[in-house]
Design a protein around this nucleic acid. Structure first.
Lengths: 120, 120
DNA sequence: GCAAGTAGTTACCTTATGGTAAGTATTGAG
DNA sequence: CTCAATACTTACCATAAGGTAACTACTTGC
């Protein structure tokens, strides 16, 4: 997934490069439902993520221009993350993905249900 | 990206799990523009991909139910790949991504152009 | 008997990624 | 003088992913 090997043949692909990777879409989803979230709040909402990976994801999203980082030098410091305008634009696209993903999930569950009934 | 660590909190994320990874969106894009393509044809359209990775991607797409594999035991054998119905449904979603990706690209190029002019 | 042509497979190596655990900075409270 | 709280860093390790190159199978044509 290094930039070197990641081909630019396809705009979709370079685009997905910014939002894919474990946890990233979920982070965007959480941020799209709140004005802003602090580092610790995001960490609490994603129990299995480590501070290292969460930091990495937020830095990459910031570098991609999708997320704002607002550092307040209080003691202890607080850092607020929020979506940029571009990040907010993603919401529509993500909802499209969500719709398809959920529909397919339901179809699959339906089929599993049918299979179980047939097996009885 | 192992299934163990890849969280299921987010439908979008499990959905993206099927289509992300280097080359995968581009393969889907190519297939969505043709009735079917042989292995060698896809390889020729993506010069930098290795046979190993292409095989891997096609197998995973097949396992996800997005791509059909049609093996013809001719000599030498020919294998036709095409989108399944579900794979074809992706086309709309991919176009949505494509639209945003291209728009942002253009906006960025515009900004770069402005910066160059300002620097003169 | 040997090369050609298709669609892979296999072995091996290198790099990238993610996980865990511990450490850092700051300062007010006890 | 030490702890607590927040938001990270850093060091180290294990696994996964990708790259390259060589090899396979099968039959036709020379």
């Amino acid at each position: 997934m290094s930039p070197k090997h990641y081909p630019n043949l396809c705009p979709i692909e370079s685009f997905l490069g910014h939002i894919m990777g474990p946890w990233t879409p979920y982070i965007l989803w959480l941020l799209s439902n709140e004005e802003s979230l602090r580092f610790g709040q995001i960490a609490a909402l994603i129990p299995d993520i480590s501070a290292k990976v969460l930091t990495d994801r937020l830095r990459k999203l910031e570098a991609s221009g999708l997320v704002n980082r607002d550092y307040q030098p209080t003691v202890p410091p607080t850092v607020y993350y929020s979506l940029t305008e571009r990040g907010a634009e993603l919401h529509g696209v993500l909802q499209g993905l969500n719709k398809v993903a959920i529909r397919w999930d339901e179809e699959d569950r339906q089929k599993e249900g049918d299979a179980e009934i047939a097996a009885e």
